[in-house]
């Protein structure tokens, strides 16, 4: 995704967009071709279900088609599409859950303060991508990510897999950048923990009693951590 200064560069979609706005379907279709692969992967990362991702992508492009004239080109066309896709996918996600899970920060401000320490510390005995069958690796990766709370999973997916910036992730999820950072740290640590239990070399496991104990961080450190993210 574009870096902040890259957004000032001329949007390479602009000429096609102008033609599409003037009523040229071929130009609009060209833009669809250009963005559909990325948006499909994006929707899959959020929804993790093929039918839902397809519906979300279709709905995104239909919205874009209907509102083409409203797009004022303050942001790049691709950014605008991603924003629509993000909102659409999140709406689907909430609907699917059939309960209005709040992804907002107000509900979980307190629990975010505690960051569990790394517990299983060991170098991985092999490169899992080389050692395992693709299916087996995929099952392990999927299992680990499914086990994460949704709010952590979404942040990890958008930031680390899709590659959005912190502020973009915050905007799509409607939470603060500070919250994105805390959730990202929790997600990364949790996934690392799970994968290390699977791939870590048991023989080389490092036990550290003082700094790397299994206890949760004491109050003072948690407080400090929280302050550093609220600053």
């Amino acid at each position: 995704m574009a870096a902040s200064n890259a957004e000032k560069k001329p949007d390479k979609d602009a000429p096609w967009l102008a033609r599409a706005k003037a009523g040229d379907f071929e130009a609009f279709e060209y833009l669809v071709n250009r963005h559909e692969k990325r948006l499909y992967a994006f929707a899959m990362h959020i929804l993790r279900n093929r039918e839902d991702a397809e519906d979300a992508v279709q709905s995104t492009f239909i919205k874009a088609l209907e509102h083409l004239q409203d797009f004022r080109e303050a942001a790049a066309f691709g950014t605008w599409l991603t924003r629509i896709a993000g909102n659409t996918a999140l709406t689907f996600l909430r609907k699917r859950k059939n309960n209005p899970v709040s992804l907002n920060e107000a509900t979980d401000e307190n629990e975010e303060g505690f960051i569990p320490h790394p517990d299983f510390i060991a170098d991985w005995s092999h490169d899992p991508a080389k050692k395992l069958e693709q299916d087996e690796l995929q099952t392990i990766l999927d299992g680990a990510i499914e086990a994460l709370p949704e709010k952590h999973r979404l942040v990890f997916m958008l930031r680390d897999v899709v590659g959005m910036r912190i502020d973009e992730t915050a905007k799509v999820l409607g939470i603060s950048a500070a919250n994105v950072k805390v959730r990202l740290l929790r997600a990364r640590l949790a996934l690392r923990e799970t994968l290390t239990r699977r791939f870590g070399d048991e023989a080389k496991r490092i036990f550290q009693t003082h700094d790397h104990g299994t206890e949760q961080m004491d109050k003072t450190s948690a407080q400090l951590l929280l302050q550093s993210y609220q600053a």
């Binding site: 692969k37 991508a129 997916m157 996934l191 790397h212």
Partner: peptide
Amino acid sequence: CNPCQVVVDTIRKTIKLYKEGEVYEIP
């Protein structure tokens, strides 16, 4: 600090695995 080094290293490996593993092709 070896433990911290291993944690940083395994976090990087974790992110890389997901980045490369979660690839979806549009049907």
